[in-house]
Amino acid sequence: MARQSLRENSALKSNRLKFVLSVMTAMMAAGCGGSKVTLHNPTIPEPLIDQMPLIVAARYPEVFDSFVHEEQVIGKEKWSIDLGRSNRMLFTQLFGSMFTDFSVVGAEDDARDLTFDALIEPSIDAFEFSVPSQSQTEEFAVWIRYRIKIFDKDGTQIANWPIAAYGKSQSGSFGGDDALKRAAVLAMRDAAALIILQMDKATGISKLSEAHANQTATPAEMPDEMTLRTTAAEDIPDESGL
C-alpha cells in the first residue's frame, strides 16, 4: 500500500515536472518564435460607383487560392501571414461591382470558347510587411504590388498595369496579430480604391465596350486600329486629394 502510494507520488511529481518543462519550453519557443496570422475572407464594402457596360471575365493564378508570406525579422521573431483565398474574393467582388457582366473563368478554360469584351488576369508581383520591431514605431505596414493584365476578345494584350497598395495599422489600438491583419485588409482596400479610380484611365478598358458595340452594330465600321495601350504607364497620377 505504502509502495503504491510512493509510486503514485513519484508519477505525480514526474507529471508535474513534465508539465512545468512543457510550459517553459512553450514560453521559450514563443519568445524566439513568431506569429502566424490568417485572414479569414475579408470583404470590401459595395462601392458607390456606376458600372461599366462591359462583359468581363477574370482568370486568377493558382496563388490566389492560397497565398502565404513569411518575414524573418533578423535576430528577432518570424512572422507569417496567410491570405488564403482573400485575393480571389477581393477581385471577384471588385470586378463584380465594376462591370455589368462579370464571370470568373478557370485556368483550364479556353478563352476562345467564351464571349467577353475583356479578359483580366490579376497577379501579385510582391508582398511585403513591416512590424514594429523593424520600423521602431507602433505600426504594422503592408505593401502589395499587384499586376493587372487585360486582353481583348482576340487575345491581344491591351494593358499591363502594375499597382502598388499600402495599408498601415497601429499595434496600440489592436493586438499585434490583429494590427497586421488590419494593415493587410487596408492594403487590399487601397488596391481596390486605386483600381476603381484609375483602371479606365490607365488601361483604356472602356474602349473595348465601344469596340464591342461597333462590331455588333456594323462590323464594317470597326476602326482598322483601335487605340489600345499595350503597357500602361506606372506613374499615372492618382486622384487622391481630388
Binding site: 462601392p47 482596400r189 480604391a193 476603381i196 486629394g241 481630388l242
Partner: peptide
Amino acid sequence: FPWFEPRTAP
C-alpha cells in the same frame, strides 16, 4: 467606399 479611403479622401 471608396471615396473616404486614405488614398481617395479629399
